[in-house]
Nucleic acid binder design. Structure first.
Length: 154
DNA sequence: GCCAACGTTGGC
DNA sequence: GCCAACGTTGGC
């Protein structure tokens, strides 16, 4: 049974259009440097479904859908001294941070804006609305479906 | 640009 | 182990 997730990113860094422009539609989701978010990455399984949320931009909200390609693996950026995501305390024999590959599924005709998400009763308890700074989080079946329905109803 | 929320760091 | 200081996220 596939699990449901939501990941946040600034579209300037990695938005739905970046997935669209890749030949295979696959982008490594790296640079996560929060333990709770990392732990959720590690729970993801191939085939799980992911909504992509655009933050800190002109149109804030859910912009598309992605699919989990593989299981989490060590984030190579933690070992790259030139990366802003370098972590001097991470060691190759015991990596601290994880990455995962996500594949494009769908770009929505229009972003579902945060303002609308806030008004959806099925989402009032969601981590999206209750944990403001978390960038990787699970969604319940109900939460996922309510967003699907919002899409279908324009 | 401001600021609230909140996770992390480090002194003790 | 506590907690103040600090840094980051992210909406507005």
């Amino acid at each position: 049974m596939a699990q449901y997730w939501l990941v946040k990113s600034e579209p300037d860094e990695c938005g739905i259009d970046d997935f669209v422009s890749k030949d295979d539609g696959i982008i490594r989701w790296d640079g996560v440097r929060n333990y709770q978010a990392r732990n959720f990455l590690r729970e993801m399984q191939p085939g799980d479904l992911v909504y992509l949320y655009h933050s800190s931009c002109a149109v804030i909200g859910i912009a598309g859908a992605l699919k989990v390609v593989n299981q989490a693996y060590p984030d190579p950026l933690q070992f790259d001294a030139n990366s802003p995501y370098y972590d001097a305390k991470a060691h190759s024999d015991k990596p601290r941070w994880s990455a995962i590959d996500l594949q494009f599924l769908d770009k929505f005709a229009s972003v579902i804006p945060l303002k609308r998400l806030k008004h959806m009763p099925q989402l009032t308890q969601s981590m999206l609305l209750t944990r403001p700074r978390l960038s990787v989080m699970p969604l319940t079946n109900d939460e996922w479906l309510s967003i699907q329905h919002a899409l279908a109803s324009g």
